[in-house]
Amino acid sequence: MVKIKISRNQFLVLLGCTLVFVIVLIVVLRIVWGGVRQPIAFNHQIHAANDLECLDCHPYYEEQASSGRPTLETCITCHEEPLGESNAERKLIEYINSKEEIKWERLYDVPEDVYFSHRRHVVLGNIECSTCHGDIGESPRPPSKPIKIKMKKCMKCHEEKEVDNDCIACHI
C-alpha cells in the first residue's frame, strides 16, 4: 500500500492550478463558443405564429445579395402601440420613442473571400430559408450562434443540385 501524502502547500498549489485551468477553460470556451447578443431578445416564434413571413422583416432576400435586417420603421408598423407585456417589447418601445435605430447584431457571417447572394439561392435556387438557417423561425429567443456552414456543405449541395461548382462562383 502506498500512501499518498500531500502537504498543505502542495494542496494549495494544486488547487490554484486547477482554478487557473478552469478559468482558462471558461475563457477559451467563451471565445470559441461565445455568440452574439442581440440588443432585444427577439422572439421569432411569436412573430411567425402571427403569420409574419420572413420577407416582412428581412425584405431584400429576393432582390439582393443581402437579406436585410428590420429597421425601426418596420417594427413601428405593428408596435407603435404595445401589443403585449413582454420585456423585449418594452425595450423596443424605448427604441421607438428615442427614434434610435436598433443595432441588430449580424448572426450569420459569410467569410470575407466568399460572395454569397440570397437572391441567387432563394429566387433562382428555390431553396427554403430553413435549409441554411434551420428552424430559426421556431426559436423563442435569438440564438447566439449561427448554424455552422462549412464549404463542404456548400459544395455538397451544389453537387446534388448540379449547379456550378467553379471556384470563382463563390470565391470572388
Binding site: Q64, S66, E105, R106, D109, E112, Y115, S117, H118
Partner: peptide
C-alpha cells in the same frame, strides 16, 4: 468582422 458580408444596396 461582420462588415464584409453583403449589405443592402
Amino acid at each position: 468582422k461582420g462588415q464584409w458580408s453583403p449589405g443592402v444596396e
